[in-house]
Write a protein that binds this DNA or RNA. Structure first.
Length: 615
DNA sequence: TGCGTAGCG
DNA sequence: ATATACGCTACGCAC
């Protein structure tokens, strides 16, 4: 038995690395008795993060308690796998930090489906996010195992991931190759693999007592675990990539990026992504660049360049000035390059052997609880053009269905703040912005009035002032001021509730608690954001609840992606109507007397078909 | 790593 | 006393 010792918070801990069958029997005996006492901490080391790529490997599986860890070398096969599997199958409870990753790894590479593992898992990352969802940059502890351990357990506990990169370098490896190539027997690798489960085991009771102390209900913890599991199933399912179309698109974008980069080069811009070069060249052509960035640099963003290229924000010709050919070239080359690297190539790189991409869904990422999607960032694909979304397909014989909540943030605001007249309008099925315009301007209101009222509505949800709303809507500032003042007279409950939320936050250490019991830390100098946090967070929980309802209705196999107020699904073409109605039903419910509703749109085979593509 | 930028709800 | 647009992911450059 290989053995490593370390000190955590002044106590000696032991990491054991079984080398043979005799050692494995010791491991099994230990695991049996340790699992009786409480949850076993579980973790894996793998070749990387690309779980679904063809030559991905599971390397070790670690089990631990507060003072002992066993690192089982899965990669050695045979008895090593057999013994690890026995514990994975039989232990009653596990604690994992960032469980979806290990669920998917063990599902794909150890044959333990997440349907078996998830119901036995407590995810300490979820618990940490419920204690404080902020990242270290935002003034929080962070939800990574390292910052949590440093804060709650031992400030000197090693950065097990970070320090290993130094080890990788000493072995002539890089961050990219290290996890794959470090020898399985490397002492630091095994020590750190073991320490992770020991730290995970120690962090669990601390976070649980923090949640109890803070009064975070157990139901919320359970709810988040359900949502994490549902998102992990979606990630495992993934989406079909239209490989042929994507390759052609990638080539076309590469050609376009190159063509217009060559044009820019003729004006002295060697690198179209260098804002300094672009600014200098434009100034050299006699253009006046008046806008500055926050740090004082000359601003040459899309809005500035579009104006120089005599185009509006939709890229349509304006005909008000001579088109600056450099601005035009930079715009086109940048867009093509961005779409290629961020989307087309990420799709192609991420596809598994069956041609499916598996976006990583972080079910509890933002400080409001909102979800995020990475690798690829499918929540952020261009929506003004179908070209990129056209790459992703419904399954064979299926069509895409996209179901959006109807104005969910406004409905949530009406519910949370108990806004009487808003609730009446929503219940009557009246268009809210028309209704508001009627109240503000009288029945003879114009389209421009409606636009201002819509802007004021959004501004209220975001905590915006007249200047920003005027900029966003293009309306004169005075008009916005008038509408905003009237808005708050018409819906007086909003300001009243906002003040109550702020008062409660100040009285409780700058934390506002959402309607579902989620703790939302506020920045002291941005207390106005409390309205947005409450609304965004409750809207997120509307989506979360709907996802749980959809699973109960047997719809989970069709779900592909959550997008804040929308769910994307792939459904058999023959049952599309029926399933679309079923999804709508699951997304329709009452929130504190306000009807939350949703509308499904049935597309064709590709996601792009919902944005104008003909396939 | 910070900044500037572009994409989304 | 008054007013403040919110939340993300990702890429490339410059340091």
């Amino acid at each position: 038995m290989q053995q490593h010792q370390h000190r955590i918070a002044g106590e000696e801990v032991n990491i054991f690395v079984p080398q043979d069958r005799v050692d494995l029997d010791v491991f099994l005996e230990w695991a049996r008795s340790a699992a009786m006492a409480g949850p076993l901490a579980l973790d894996t080391e793998t070749t990387g993060l690309d779980i679904f790529s063809p030559n991905y490997r599971l390397r070790t599986v670690q089990f631990g308690t507060r003072d002992t860890a066993f690192v089982v070398h899965w990669e050695r096969g045979g008895h090593f796998q057999e013994y690890a599997l026995r514990v994975l199958r039989n232990a009653h409870n596990f604690t994992i930090h960032n469980a979806p990753f290990d669920w998917l790894v063990l599902g794909e590479h150890a044959g333990i489906p997440l349907e078996s593992l998830a119901p036995r898992t407590i995810d300490t990352k979820i618990l940490a996010a419920l204690v404080d969802p902020r990242q270290p940059m935002e003034g929080g502890i962070g939800t990574g195992l390292k910052p949590l351990s440093a804060y709650y357990i031992d400030p000197t506990s090693p950065d097990t991931q970070g320090d290993l990169t130094a080890v990788f370098r000493s072995l002539g490896l890089t961050k990219a190759t290290g996890w794959r190539s470090i020898p399985l027997g490397h002492p630091t690798y095994n020590l750190y693999a073991g320490l992770d489960v020991i730290l995970g085991s120690r962090i669990l009771p601390i976070l649980v007592s923090e949640l109890d102390r803070l009064g975070v209900r157990d139901a919320l913890r359970q709810y988040e675990h359900e949502i994490a599991r549902i998102c992990a199933v979606m990630q495992r399912t993934g989406m079909v990539l239209d490989d042929e179309y994507t390759r052609e698109l990638d080539a076309a974008l590469a050609a376009e990026a190159e063509e217009f980069a060559a044009v820019a080069a003729r004006y002295g811009v060697e690198n179209i992504n260098s804002t300094a070069q672009v600014a200098e060249a434009l100034l050299g052509m006699g253009e006046r660049l008046t806008e500055r960035t926050a740090s004082g640099a000359v601003k040459v963003d899309k809005a500035v360049l579009l104006a120089l290229a005599d185009r509006n924000m939709q890229w349509e010709p304006l005909g008000v000035r001579r088109r600056n050919p450099l601005a035009e070239a930079v715009l086109r080359s940048k867009r093509a390059g961005k779409w290629r690297s961020a989307y087309a190539q990420t799709f192609l790189d991420g596809a598994d052997l069956r041609g499916r991409v598996h976006p990583n869904i972080n079910s509890l990422q933002a400080r409001t609880g909102r979800m995020s999607v990475t690798g690829p960032a499918l929540q952020t694909l261009p929506s003004s053009d179908w070209m990129i979304r056209r790459c992703l397909l419904a399954d064979e014989g299926h069509v895409m269905v996209s179901t959006d909540f109807a104005a969910v943030e406004m409905c949530v605001l009406a519910a949370l703040a108990d806004v009487k007249r808003m609730k009446e309008a929503i219940a009557a099925g009246i268009d809210l912005h028309n209704f508001t315009a009627g109240l503000v301007y009288g029945e003879g209101f114009t389209k421009a009035h409606r636009k201002i009222c819509k802007g004021v509505g959004f501004g209220t949800v975001y905590g915006g002032g007249p200047v920003t709303i005027a900029r966003q809507t293009g309306a004169p500032e005075d008009d916005v001021r008038f509408a905003q003042a009237k808005y708050h007279r018409v819906y007086p409950e909003i300001k009243r509730t906002a003040q109550r939320w702020q008062r409660e936050a100040y009285a409780s250490g700058m934390v506002t608690v959402s309607v579902t019991g989620r703790r939302l830390p506020l920045d002291r100098d941005r207390a106005y954001a409390v309205v947005n946090y409450q609304v965004q967070s409750a809207a997120r929980d509307c989506l979360g609840q709907a996802m749980i309802t959809m699973e109960e209705a047997g719809l989970l196999p069709y779900l592909r992606l959550p997008i804040h107020d929308e769910v994307l699904a792939s459904v058999p073409a023959t049952e599309a109507e029926e399933l679309a109605r079923e999804i709508e039903r699951c997304m329709t419910f009452d929130l504190m007397g306000v009807p939350i509703s949703a509308e499904a749109e049935i597309g064709g085979r590709s996601w792009g078909s919902l944005y104008g593509a003909d396939y």
